[in-house]
């Protein structure tokens, strides 16, 4: 039997990891030009969404193909609050978390009865249907055009502190604290009693219910937490410039799932790795195709092909993802 580890509610390890992530990205951004700084901001934003999948699938075994739709819920609620009620962006982000958590509650109520492929299919239908709501009720959600929203200007105290701040830097400074906080929250959550409860439900529902765990309630709570994260990510993602149906396509949901799977569904370090892969892989491929002078038809579809192949290979060779592979190697060294 493995040793039983005990953790304090606010772990030292999770604080450390979140800070390391924050500083690492910040240092990296200083080395980078504007384009890659923007990509780093994308990583920070999408990491929050990938964490929402790691939380949902890795911790509880439920699968959602509709995280992009929940991101849309967060994005639209923040955009509506900012444009209609003219509240500050930060407050809108916080409120977007609450709205999407509420949405997650409803989703969880439905999802608690579903599992496996039923849930996957239902969330996939949702991923298609939610953006179409924006088009259906276009007087309220302004249809295909969507809302033009942005991060605004950095506050004076920050420019006084750091000097001139470019748009790319500012978008990173907006996204990064949220990403570090989400990382901290997810790391802590998985070490608490709830985290262990979720894993028990994931591994064996019957055994978990015999141990006195309320399965339905647990699943709903997981959905609420996961949706809150996805909604936050959606709000930050939309405020890069536009909140519209085209910003949250079905492919986004699948891309996020790919990131979580490549890294390893049960590993938070894996989520970070997977997010880096999905954001930077297209750039790397573009350089290679330019270097090899491949025709355009290939270069357009090559990123999608590589990401699909990566997903497939991960699942076939090592379903635990790259984090699982590392763990495997470490284990072999120990014995």
């Amino acid at each position: 039997m493995s040793k039983v580890k005990t953790h304090k509610v606010i772990g030292f390890r999770s604080t450390r990891l979140a800070i390391i992530f924050f500083v690492f990205i910040l240092l990296l951004s200083m080395k980078f030009g504007p384009y890659n700084q923007f990509q780093l901001a994308n990583i920070a934003t999408l990491l929050i969404a990938v964490l929402s999948i790691t939380l949902l699938t890795g911790a509880s075994g439920q699968i959602s193909l509709g995280q992009g739709a929940i991101m849309a819920v967060g994005g639209y609620s923040a955009a509506l609050l900012v444009t209609r009620l003219e509240i500050s962006m930060w407050l809108a982000f916080v409120l977007a978390i609450f709205v999407s958590a509420l949405f997650g509650l409803f989703l969880g109520l439905a999802a608690a009865r579903l599992s496996g492929p039923y849930l996957a299919g239902t969330t996939l239908v949702m991923a298609l249907a939610i953006p179409s709501i924006a088009i259906r009720f276009d007087s309220f959600f302004s249809g295909d055009i969507g809302f033009s929203v942005d991060y605004g200007y950095p506050p004076d105290w920050l420019t006084n502190l750091l000097g001139e701040i470019t748009i790319e830097e500012w978008s990173l400074y907006v996204a990064l604290p949220f990403a570090a906080l989400s990382l901290f929250a997810v790391l802590n959550l998985s070490n608490t009693r709830s985290g262990r409860t979720w894993r028990a439900v994931r591994d064996n529902e019957v055994a978990a219910s015999l141990a006195g765990i309320n399965i339905a309630r647990t699943k709903i709570i997981v959905f609420v937490c996961s949706s809150a994260l996805a909604g936050l990510a959606g709000a930050i993602y939309g405020f890069r410039g536009l909140v519209a149906p085209s910003v949250y396509p079905t492919d986004l949901s699948l891309l996020l799932l790919t990131a979580a799977v490549i890294g390893g569904l049960r590993s938070i370090g894996g989520a970070i790795f997977g997010t880096f892969v999905i954001v930077f892989l297209p750039d790397v491929i573009e350089r290679v195709t330019k270097f090899l002078e491949l025709p355009e038809t290939i270069s357009i579809y090559l990123p999608a092909l590589m990401i699909g192949l990566l997903l497939l290979l991960t699942v076939i060779l090592n379903p635990r993802g790259s984090a699982g592979a590392l763990e495997h190697i470490r284990h072999r060294h120990k014995h």
Binding site: T57, S60, G61, Q62, I63, L65, S115, G116, P117, A120, V201, R202, D203, N204, E205, L254, L257, T258, V261, L265, T297, I298, I300, Y301, L302, A304, L305, I307, G308, L309, L311, L312, V315, I316, P319
Partner: peptide, 27 residues
């Protein structure tokens, strides 16, 4: 070894196949 992952993993694999087929058709 976990129950829920056993139904989840083939679903993920099929999504991978879908992605690969779409990209190949595009190429």
């Amino acid at each position: 070894n976990s129950q829920s992952m056993r139904t989840t993993v083939p679903v993920i694999a099929s999504l991978g196949i879908l992605g690969v087929l779409k990209a190949l058709a595009g190429i």
